[in-house]
Design a binder for these strands. Structure first.
Length: 867
RNA sequence: GGGCGCUUAGCUCAGUGGAAGAGCACUCGGUUUACACCCGAGCGGUCACUGGUUCGAACCCAGUAGCGCCCACCA
């Protein structure tokens, strides 16, 4: 079978991603492909990037998230939407402040308070300029089709204006207030933290039982935090606890101090825990704070903001931990320690940023009153205005919004949005909007806002809010939000609350920030462990991009992206994805060498492999669209991988080699062009670079970025052609297996008679290296398949009778087992009475097939015996 | 303490009522003119365990064991 190359490919023989990716990306941006146009006739499709923190580098989780978003955006663009993917970064208040502090300590040997606030903030801006650029560069390397003309930063002028505006609205609506409560305090970062910025970990500590008071007036309390006893202002017992009823209302002497504290009855106390009596430290424990409020107890702060004891006496100045040991020792000396349980495992809160043990602390802070906002956020999902994908994660969302407590939004930090409240010299406080000027002599609140406060505005602040802009009208609500399930509480809930509050659409309730929330899982290492610096298993996506190309990294991540599920990654998968790109490269080269074209209409008369592959294209496209609608990236990637490799490359291109040498070569060239053109478009959202390079070379078109998404052509469905190819595949598979079992070298040509293959005979002969039967032809083996194709081979003198007999015996026993299984089912009256007709028919077919198989194998065994 | 999820081939994972799947790894064969980053052929699983429902269970129900995650004011 000979064919003559009639065209030189415009493609080198090897693909080098590094050489083309950067240039392609720059061209896309220059040509404005990624720039959305609010005046466009096209329907809008929009999404905002979860703004990466300006803390340094992107990790594989970002790469996964952005690969998903880019695939969605690029596909929408190809489908004719005016697609906007809005990029940007988050100032990450506490995280960046910590990094800048560490950086300054290392480089200049100074602490935060060695700088003025202005100097420090300036240093943080320098940090942002330096590392923010790095992140944007990584996004370019990955190929993100973001609209750079709309890039935003949470601390830029427009977003700062949005922050101040909504703060004032909430303040005026009495949804922001200032109050003294117990908050989570980080003694290292010297700031308040919200509940979700505290990580709890089981730790082994000690449970110390201490006798308060003496004689008949004594009571034993148990504590893990003996040092806080200096701030005790009561002992609480359960109101119905008979053991202590007589003590309620009396006082006991607090050891190591000369204070008398009351014994109160409170329902919060669990009589079955410990001694059933609990010490009450209202200023240093959230529970005790509540008890204190109910019983009007004094709130005694005994520690400073760094966790050192301030209560006067021998312990003053000691750190909380030192104080604990000293106080226990002192109590022991006084004989007040009744019991010590060590180790005692309990949960301890840590600062999620610096891991310091958090100190509950009575403090004056700003709060968002969340009840009404959280209700609206919950209802929007409950009534279907927002869809959470996968739906199995919705309960987590509800559990959160339905139990949300007021949100502490003030932070004692410098890097962030300063709280827009000013104090008069008399101490009055007034909130000012962005266009208002506080009177001279007033001073602004020192605190900044929780970084999630500005993040919560991201879907509309980035589009111009509070101004009534074209972008805002057109792109809000955004189409979909893609983020990790671990960010559901931090970010998604808050965007819902603020979006519904701020984005009024004439109705009583605002418009949702997005239609769908798509939650992805975490990227883990190859053995399923979480990536972390301390484990040393963090992988920099750039390293893999350098080695295998951005497409390979993207595709391997998407291959593992099952909705809501974590995924383990390892380098071998990236290698596999790289190999896939190479495969596409070579397939396209092959097509071009052989004159594949996209010029002109497809011929009306198409048959054989050409008809089959066009028919398959329809099916694949329909399945692919279905997977995309359900955000099944892994399945979409798998579908295209197998279609491209197994069907297009392994079968269609091989079969095309025959057609290209025959009278229908022109048709096949056109179909080859059509198939690769379509395949490359379908793959482009996932692997943009290699598809762009190949598609432009193949078609001469401007760019696949702006090429239309392929359509299903019902007229190309061809069940007959499909059945014919399936029959060829079946017999080819069977004979290949036979040849392999017989130890025939692949190149060994064998005389054979082929019957029942129709026009597929040439293909069967080509693929199996079969010669025409000569005059001395004597069939020594016959293979028939379900498609009705028979191949008789002449292996005179070379056949390994024993090997083939063993093989056939194995087939026979499998077929017999199959026959028995299905016959038994049909003999079962319960089955035939209750099973659906389709299932029964299937079993009948299988029985018939098994019987045919048995006959075929027995015939073959007979032929073998006479050979 | 409460809630949720997982357990399928050596590894990482699909499959949620009608014949056990993929990728990688492994074995054998290959200088077939797009591709060895390749081609062809294979090996490999009582679907954690025990019971139940059903004509039929990897899939539904109950329980057991192991692993993981989330929430929580475990003094």
């Amino acid at each position: 079978m000979a064919f003559t190359p009639d065209a030189r490919p415009d493609l080198p023989s090897q693909y080098s991603p590094a050489e083309v990716e950067g240039a392609l990306y720059d061209t896309w941006v220059q040509r404005g492909y990624f720039t959305a146009d609010p005046r466009s006739e096209k329907p809008p499709f929009s999404l905002v990037i979860p703004p990466p923190n300006v803390t340094g580098n992107l990790h594989l989780g970002h790469a996964l998230e952005q690969s998903m978003m880019d695939a969605l955006t690029r596909r929408a663009r190809m489908r004719g939407f005016d697609a906007l993917w809005l990029p940007g970064m988050d100032h990450a208040s506490i995280a960046v402040q910590n990094l800048v502090e560490r950086h300054l300590a290392e480089t200049e040997g100074k602490g935060r308070f060695d700088y003025s606030r202005e100097e420090f903030v300036q240093k943080a801006w320098e940090w942002k300029e330096r590392f923010g650029g790095q992140i944007l560069g990584q996004m370019r390397r990955l190929g993100d089709s973001v609209d750079w003309t709309r890039e935003r930063f949470t601390m830029d002028a427009g977003l700062s204006r949005a922050v101040q505006t909504i703060f004032k609205q909430l303040y005026d609506d009495d949804l922001i207030y200032r109050a003294e409560r117990i908050i989570n305090w980080c003694p290292r970062d010297l700031t308040a933290l919200s509940d979700i910025e505290v990580d709890h970990a089981e730790e082994s500590g000690e449970l110390i039982s201490i006798r308060y008071g003496d004689g008949g007036n004594s009571i034993v309390v148990a504590t893990t935090r003996a040092e806080t006893m200096l701030g005790d202002t009561a002992v609480a017992v359960h109101p119905e606890d008979e053991r202590y009823r007589h003590l309620v209302g009396r006082t006991v002497a607090l050891p190591l101090t000369n204070r008398e504290i009351p014994i109160v009855a409170d329902g919060h106390v669990d009589p079955s825990f410990g001694t059933g009596a609990v010490k009450v430290t209202p200023a240093h424990d959230p529970n005790d704070f509540e008890i204190g409020r109910r019983h009007d107890l004094p709130m005694l702060t005994i520690m400073d903001e760094r966790g050192a004891i301030t209560a006067p006496g021998p312990f003053a100045g000691l750190d909380r931990l030192e104080a604990r040991y000293s106080i226990v020792a002192a109590l022991r000396e006084e004989g007040r320690i009744v019991a010590e349980k060590r180790p005692y495992v309990h949960s301890v809160g840590h600062c999620s940023r610096c891991d310091t043990v958090v100190e509950p602390r009575l403090s004056l802070q700003w709060w968002v009153r969340v009840e009404r906002l959280a209700k609206a956020a919950g209802d929007a999902v409950r009534d279907g205005r927002v869809r959470i994908e996968p739906a199995s994660l919705a309960p987590r969302y509800f559990a959160w919004v339905d139990g949300l407590r007021d949100w502490c939004i003030s932070r004692q930090l410098w890097w962030g949005h300063r709280i827009p409240v000013w104090y008069s010299p008399d101490g009055d406080d007034v909130c000012f909007g962005p266009d208002e000027q506080p009177p001279a002599g007033w001073t602004q609140d020192e605190d900044v806002l929780d970084t999630w406060f500005s993040s919560a505005l991201w879907p509309f602040s980035t589009l111009g809010w509070p101004e009534d802009t074209d972008d805002l009208r057109r792109y809000y609500p955004t189409s979909v939000l893609v983020t990790g399930y671990d960010i559901l509480f931090f970010w998604v809930v808050r965007m819902m609350m603020f979006g519904l509050y701020a984005m009024h659409d004439g109705g009583p309730e605002g418009e949702v920030p997005f239609r769908t929330v798509l939650l992805h899982g975490l990227v883990r290492d190859s053995s399923g462990k979480k990536m972390s610096k301390s484990r040393g298993n963090v992988i920099d996506p750039l390293v893999w991009i350098d080695e295998y190309g951005a497409d390979a990294v993207r595709f391997s991540l998407l291959q593992g992206a099952n909705p809501g599920a974590d995924q383990a990654v390892n380098e071998e998968w990236v290698v596999g994805a790289r190999n896939f790109c190479t495969k596409l490269w070579n397939a396209t080269r092959f097509a071009m060498i052989n004159g594949a074209t996209v010029e002109g209409e497809l011929p009306a008369e198409v048959d054989g492999a050409d008809a089959w592959i066009l028919s398959r294209l329809n099916t694949v496209l329909a399945e692919l669209d279905e997977f995309y609608e359900r955000f099944e990236f892994a399945k979409a990637a798998d579908l295209l991988y197998h279609f491209a490799w197994d069907e297009v490359c392994d079968w269609y291109l091989e079969l095309a080699k025959i057609a290209l040498a025959g009278p229908r070569a022109a048709t096949t060239r056109r179909v080859l062009g059509e198939v690769l053109d379509t395949l490359l478009r379908l793959l482009h959202p996932m692997i943009p670079f290699v598809t762009e390079r190949l598609w432009t070379a193949l078609t001469g078109g401007e760019s696949v970025v702006i090429a239309p998404w392929p359509a299903v052509h019902p007229a190309r469905d061809d069940p007959a052609a499909t059945a014919a190819i399936v029959a060829v595949q079946a017999v080819v598979g069977e004979v290949r297996r036979f040849r392999s079992d017989q130890g025939l070298k692949p190149a060994q040509r064998v005389p054979a008679r082929v019957t029942g293959a129709g026009t597929g005979e040439a293909a069967v002969r080509w693929l199996l290296r079969l010669d025409e039967p000569g005059e001395a032809f004597a069939a020594t083996a016959a293979l028939t398949t379900a498609g009705g194709v028979t191949v008789e081979l002449d292996l005179s003198g070379t056949i390994d009778v024993a090997a083939e007999r063993a093989r056939l015996a194995k087939d026979l026993s499998a077929a017999q087992k199959e026959r028995e299984t299905n016959a038994a089912k049909l003999a079962n009256e319960a089955f035939t009475a209750k099973a659906p007709e389709a299932v029964i028919a299937k079993v009948r077919d299988r029985l018939a097939a098994a019987e045919a198989d048995i006959e075929r194998v027995q015939t073959a065994l007979g032929a073998l015996a006479s050979a």
